[in-house]
Amino acid sequence: MSKLLNLATPIPVAENVEKLMDIVTDTFSSQFRFIQNNGADLMDFVTSTLTSIPPYVFMLIVAVLAFFATGKKFGLAIFSILGLLFILNQGLWDQLMNTFTLVMFSSLIAIIIGIPLGILMSKSKVVEEILKPILDFMQTMPGFVYLIPAVAFFGIGVVPGVFASVIFALPPTVRFTNLGIRQVPKHLIEAADSYGSTFTQKLLKVELPLSKATIMAGINQTVLLSLSMVVIASMIGAPGLGREVLSALQRAQIGNGFVAGISLVIFAIIVDRLTQSLNKDKSNGGK
């Protein structure tokens, strides 16, 4: 009975988490500041470079890329040009470039962290057992929650936005890399081993090439997830299309919200189809 009564007094989880956050923030404050400042500078630079490209040139580049990535078909190329024209026409080009930078940085960082983690996970049962629940946790946690540590560490702006997006978008790349490597047939691993391959040789010459399609599927998901964080990240001051959606929401401007939303969808479709067709292209070419 007394045990049951004990349950009624709340365990101080929230307090402890807060304390932990404070400790982390204090200890690494100078590092966080460094990342915040330099990260913001770097991303500003990339965005302004992108914006300085004339929109029509940019569209042409995307269209050519789409044309060749989809196996010399016109569909995606035409869609890209029309879609981007629409965004330009609605005066959202600069915001699009901001979003592009945000998605690019979060995806790249997520991939750079995710693939090695996935490799580690595929090589060690222990690492797999530890990472699996963490990844589940990361994926089921609503994206909003990551804004809290992001703000605590980096304040507001684009860098905490990237931080939150990376955490949110990381799991698929890790998972799919792990899955892809574990799916490599056992007899091929045996063949690689029997010829005396080192760990790295086996990884680079057999395991990664054979799991490329699976890893690319994970990367595609990571890119889309980081894109889905764009609106959420705008709540802590990340610029871009997300901010347009957010401000339309705050002012109940249905029309503006719709336009910004559609622009995001167009961008998402282009990015999704492009990364997917890159994957298909590779797996067919080098079967």
């Binding site: 007899h187 045996e190 063949a191 029997s194 010829y195 057999v206 054979l210």
Partner: peptide
Amino acid sequence: MSMVFQNFALFPQ
């Protein structure tokens, strides 16, 4: 030593 396998074990890529 070199090994030859029942299911060939050639690298498909």
